[in-house]
Amino acid sequence: MNILAIETATPGCAMAVRTSEGVELELVLGDERHHTEALTPGIRDLLYKVKISAASIDRVVVDRGPGLYTGLRVGIATALGFSVASGAELVGVTSLEVLAHGAFNSGVRGTLVSVVDGRRGEVFIQIFSLDASVLALSDPKVALPREVALEWNQRGDVVTFTGDGAARYADEFAGVTHGLIFNQQVPSPLAALALGALRAPQVAIVPLYLREADAVANFTTRQPPS
C-alpha cells in the first residue's frame, strides 16, 4: 500500500510517503506558514523521488489539528483532493498524538505533554505516558502556558514538554522544577504516517479546532439596528 502523510498543523509544511515496497521518505519545509504554495509541489517532488505517481496513492494520512487554522484547511483540503481524484482512503491523526509519537520514536520516555501553539497567548495540550507504547492520559484542551507550568510545578513530577508551543513559551516551561523540553517544532510526518497506517480509514476528516468548536456567537450584547 502506498501511503502519503500530510502535516500542516504548525507553521512548518511537512509530508512523508511510504511505498508498498517499504521505501520511506519525508520532506519538512521551513516554518514559513506558506502551506498553500509549498504543500502540493512538495508532494510532487516527494513522489518523484520514490518513483510513484499521485494516482497510485492508496491512503492519505492527514493531521487534523489542533493547530494553525489556515494550515489545517490546506492540509485537509489536499487530502480530500486525493480522495476525490483517485479514491484514496483517508485517515485523520491529531497533532498532539503525532508529537507524542515523534518524541517516543526519538527515545523520550515517561510523562509527556504535547504543546501546540494556539496563538494569542494560548496553547493546545494533551498529556501522554510514554512507556512500552504511547498512551493518552487526558483529552486535548486549550490552556494558558503559565497555568500548565504552574500545574506541573505543583505536581512535582518529572515531565517532558514538546511541540512548537513548548518552544514559544520556553520561558514558562523551563521554569518547571522537574520539567524538560524536547525540541520538536513540526510534528513528524513519518510518525503521522506510521500511526495512520495502522488505523481504519474514515469517511470524513473533521478538523479539530478545540476553540469554540460548536459555539454560537454571544449576541446578547448586540442590539438590533435602530
Binding site: Y69, T70, R119, R120, G121, R211, R222
Partner: peptide, 27 residues
C-alpha cells in the same frame, strides 16, 4: 483567520469583536 493573518506584520481591528472573543484567545 485574523489571528493568523496578523502574524505577517499586520494588526486587526474587530468591530463587535467581543461577541466572538473566544475565537481570538487571551492576548
Amino acid at each position: 483567520a485574523l489571528g493568523e493573518l496578523v502574524e505577517d506584520g499586520a494588526v486587526a481591528l474587530v468591530e463587535w469583536g467581543e461577541i466572538a472573543s473566544s475565537v481570538f484567545g487571551r492576548d
